[in-house]
């Protein structure tokens, strides 16, 4: 086809890619259960496509329609995927290839993104800044804010990264995706273990004779054993397909009941 002539005409500047990275913030602007992020995903890229396709309304329409398909990926990482696919759009790579890459990559990226951002960074940054804040230190919220502004700004280099690496980036991610996910999970779980002991607080008031069940027994066996056991109990219930909303309700009612009966 005409692909050899298209190869040389570079329509996007560095500025365009930077703007793409910033606009990726609108990924979830049209979120719905039916197609998740599709509407926002397509909308954030429309200005880029307009520039690439110019007056070619048919190509623009095809790109818009293709990208209205279901997508659900990691918001902080999405600009990598956008940059990557944009480099392919600019070279007018076959529509099916772009579509296939999009569908192949958004899922694994969602997994990696969740592991890094929600399960690793959020507990660490949130935990550290909250431990400052709960003592009344304004540094807590400030640290949190600065870190997350940094994470937002990373969308710009990420967009360039995706764009520049083009097809090569896929090899890198696919080669290492298993190791990346594994290592992030290990780190995340170590931190979650620590958080269970410091954030979940349960202690019994019950006394048997003069022996306090909590102070004289449980604390001597293993401190914080109750929070760990309770967390695993809830985990077991979730595995049994009990809905989290039901669990929240049950925990609420249980706590109030225990308070009323003087157990806790």
């Amino acid at each position: 086809m005409a692909s050899s002539t298209q190869d040389t005409d570079k329509k996007l500047t560095k500025h365009d890619i930077t703007m793409l990275g910033l606009r990726s913030a609108f990924l979830q602007s049209a979120f719905s259960y039916e197609r998740m992020q599709a509407g926002g995903w397509a909308w954030s890229q429309v200005p880029t496509w307009k520039k690439i396709f110019g007056s070619d309304k048919k190509a623009l329409s095809e790109a818009m329609q293709d990208n209205m398909e279901f997508i659900n990926t990691s918001p902080p990482l999405v600009s990598i995927l956008m940059g990557l696919l944009t480099s392919l759009e600019e070279k007018r790579v076959d529509r099916q290839t772009i579509r296939g890459l999009k569908n192949g990559l958004f899922g694994p990226m969602a997994g990696i993104g969740d592991a890094i951002y929600w399960f690793t960074l959020m507990p660490i940054v949130g935990g550290i800044s909250a431990s400052f804040a709960s003592k009344g230190n304004i540094l807590g919220p400030i640290i949190f804010f600065i870190v997350y502004i940094g994470i937002f700004l990373c969308r710009i280099p990420f967009a360039h990264l995706g764009y520049n690496l083009g097809v090569k980036a896929i090899d890198v991610i696919q080669d290492n995706s298993e190791i990346i996910a594994r290592v992030a999970t290990i780190m995340g779980l170590t931190v979650i273990g620590a958080l269970i002991s410091s954030y979940v607080s349960l202690s019994l008031k019950v006394k048997i004779g003069t022996v306090s069940l909590q102070k004289d027994f449980l604390d001597k066996v293993f401190p914080n054993i109750l929070p760990l056991a309770f967390t695993f109990f809830l985990y077991w219930l979730l595995k049994k397909k009990v809905s989290p909303i039901v669990l929240i309700g049950v925990v609420f009612v249980l706590c109030i009941l225990c308070s009323f009966l003087g157990i806790m």
């Binding site: 399960f119 995340g188 607080s201 225990c258 308070s259």
Partner: peptide
């Protein structure tokens, strides 16, 4: 007792969140 119950819930609810994380991870 009701207010104390809310207090207890504040300490116990994170367990639900952690259980949800564990289910995924």
């Amino acid at each position: 007792w009701l207010i104390h119950g809310f207090e207890l819930a504040g300490g116990a609810l994170p367990a639900v969140g952690f259980a949800m994380l564990l289910k995924v991870l």
